[in-house]
Design a protein around this nucleic acid. Structure first.
Lengths: 187, 187
DNA sequence: ACCCGATCTTATCAATGGAAAGATAGGGTG
DNA sequence: CACCCTATCTTTCCATTGATAAGATCGGGT
């Protein structure tokens, strides 16, 4: 489609979206730089210029993922339950980003770009977690917030791994809300 | 060291343990069959006889992991909180097994051996989850059990991914128990 | 003593990731 | 407008890997 000129025009973005699609389809292990290049219509060495190596490509994808997660959490409003459902939705809708983000062995976790994006996401997450309903003066705030994060993260991970029983047929948002409500019942 | 005879003697087991060590160290992606063979002192084609291909090796590892998880849960006693802590301990102590188990894209999830082991683990997990304290007649049992599984799984996953804050300095068992108690306070 | 299956080895091949060196395009500067 | 200069992409090359095929060796059972 874009194989007119010597320059691709938007190869970096094309590679990122193609990477996300490939990972969502076959998993991060089966990712092939050469295959990505083929689909983008460029030579197999072209990606190296933009990302250095495979880990660099996944670093950029993780950074993009953290930025999107931060936006998602910011847009969820102040309610913790809504934020939790948004967290789960993000994991499922951007499965590739999510899976890469939480596998630091796949990329360069100390890269300044991804570190900054992750810090921003951590901030958005902390804000969401600090807005717990009905527990203004909990005796163990840290454990309570870790538990909230863990339920959302664990439910998303189990869903993505296909480990959940056949109840996965149900609507995701509904099931997620039911599960997360167990930890923080609405006031 | 083991270059006595033509036959290794226990190559299958040696490869499995070496695989677990390599994955715990470098992650599943960096796993190299040839490197495993080198360390075991056999030719690079020897693993193929025992496991077929790379996915076959990881299938065996996942099956072993599910079997160990079932034993772990069975040995945890009837208490749900203890079972949750045992779940987290298993994930951390057998990191490689745990990571592979919940990435079905890495192996053959429909293999009869791993399917049987997973069913047994699911049974042990269901038994542990059905023994919730203080909620004999909950209105939403399924969501409650999913939430319990999710907290334990999510906390373990976050810990393994290094996503938790610097609080990771604390003792794992203690922190896990504090977090899991948030969902199911002891009677 | 012999055979046979299980185990391991020695080729060999296609595909991959990565690096080096060169070609091309397009914008900014004179 | 001509020129250079940088980013972008290609071509070429190499080491490593996963997988397969065909052969060698061991060891138990008859």
């Amino acid at each position: 489609m874009t194989d007119r000129s010597y320059h691709h025009g938007d190869l970096r973005r094309a590679l990122l979206t193609a990477t996300a699609a490939a990972i969502a389809d076959k998993g991060p292990t089966a990712l092939s730089l050469r295959d990505l290049a083929r689909r983008a219509g460029v030579s197999h060495a072209a990606p190296a210029h933009h990302f250095g190596d495979k880990a660099g490509l996944l670093t950029a994808l993780a950074a993009e993922g953290y930025a999107m997660l931060a936006d998602t959490l910011d847009a969820a409003g102040g309610d913790l339950l809504d934020s939790g459902v948004a967290y789960v939705r993000f994991a499922v809708e951007h499965r590739a980003h999510f899976e890469v983000m939480f596998q630091p062995g796949l990329y360069h976790p100390d890269d300044p770009e991804v570190a900054a994006a992750r810090e921003r996401a951590d901030g958005s997450l902390a804000t969401a977690l600090s807005a717990r309903p009905g527990h203004p003066h909990d005796e163990d705030t840290e454990a309570s917030q870790l538990a909230a994060w863990s339920v959302a993260h664990g439910f998303a991970a189990l869903w993505l791994s296909g480990a959940l029983p056949t109840s996965a047929e149900s609507d995701l948002d509904t099931l997620a809300r039911r599960v997360l409500s167990q930890l923080f019942p609405q006031p």
